[in-house]
């Protein structure tokens, strides 16, 4: 690969790993409080669609992002209701949520726009403010402002989870909810907050997919990115730094396969190249080490006393 091709590759790796990082950070909250979230995919889909709808209706992409965040929050609220309040099965709920959000997004897209593609809307693909910075401004301005928002959210998340009493309680509730309840802390409020934050962040990640990378929504645009975020959390040992590393690794594979599709250097068919990021994700999942960082009470329901019979 010639040297001039390295910079675009780095740029595209960052662009492709950003949604996995933002959604992964959200999932970290969710799993830290002990709720497994296979619905990240659905939350991202609702975010992506609502963002385009918001931008389409108001003309302002930032209001679109707000819409996306709220839609993700709403999807998160459904997941929280089933998993936290009703003591439901986390994996099944996540699966249902993904199907539901995919269905609603497709249904609304066809009903409103008349096809599975939305029209082009105002987007946030570049940050023109940064163009003035010497030397690097040329590159920095090529990123969506949502990427910078994502980095900021990652830093804040690290601080919240590892440096505040709230984060300590969050980590404790994922390991042993009974002890936390005995200590007089409201387990369910903590779990609600974790799942809702997750929903909002996944919504932002979805908005980035539709408004930051592209300027439209189409059916199947998330296709597995949410699951990649779930993997990034497990591989990244439930911390923002680790999640960033895994997201960049998975993004690298995605960028490489896209480049090979465009260049046709290996002469492989696009379908074979398309599966590379997923296979990379599976390999990463299978050969990760240090599973002892896993929240002990992950995927376990903790019911309020009044619901027991």
């Amino acid at each position: 690969m010639p040297e001039w091709a390295v910079v675009p590759l780095i740029l595209s790796v960052i662009r492709l790993s950003a949604p996995m990082f933002i959604a992964g950070t959200g999932n970290m909250y969710c799993e830290r409080v002990g709720v497994l979230n296979l619905g990240a995919e659905g939350m991202m889909v609702s975010g992506a669609f609502a963002a385009v709808l918001g931008s389409y209706l108001t003309g302002s992409p930032w209001i679109g992002v707000l819409f996306g965040m709220l839609a993700g929050l709403l999807a998160g609220a459904i997941h929280a209701l089933v998993c936290v309040e009703f003591g439901g099965m986390h994996a099944i709920s996540g699966l249902g949520l993904t199907m539901l959000c995919n269905g609603i997004a497709r249904f609304l897209c066809i009903s409103i726009f008349g096809s599975t593609y939305s029209p082009n809307v105002n987007a946030l693909q570049t940050s023109q403010i940064l163009v003035g910075i010497p030397v690097v401004g040329r590159f920095l301005s090529q990123f969506s402002p949502l990427i910078y928002l994502g980095i900021l959210l990652g830093l804040i998340s690290w601080f919240i989870v590892f440096r505040t009493p709230y984060g300590l309680r969050m980590r404790a509730v994922g390991d042993d909810p009974k002890t936390v309840e005995t200590a007089g802390i409201n387990v369910w409020r903590l779990r609600y907050s974790g799942v809702l934050i997750c929903g909002a962040l996944c919504g932002i990640a979805g908005s980035y997919m539709s408004l930051g990378q592209l300027d439209r929504f189409f059916d199947g645009m998330i296709s597995g990115k949410g699951m990649m975020a779930v993997i990034a959390v497990k591989m990244g040992k439930w911390s923002p730094g680790g999640i960033l590393g895994t997201a960049l690794l998975l993004g690298l594979f995605d960028a490489l396969q896209m480049r090979l599709q465009v260049n046709q250097t290996l002469g492989l068919s696009p379908e074979l190249l398309g599966m590379v990021p997923y296979l990379a994700g599976i390999v990463v999942l299978c050969f990760q080490k240090g599973r002892n960082a896993r929240p002990i009470a992950l995927d376990a329901a903790y019911l309020r006393n009044k619901y027991k019979f």
């Binding site: 099944i92 709920s93 269905g103 609603i104």
Partner: peptide, 20 residues
């Protein structure tokens, strides 16, 4: 006919909470 996915998704979600 995408409404079928909505029926199914909400059905799975309600199955997940059948305990309640």
């Amino acid at each position: 006919n995408e409404i079928i996915s909505v029926v199914q998704g909400s059905l799975i979600l309600s199955v997940a909470s059948n305990y309640i």
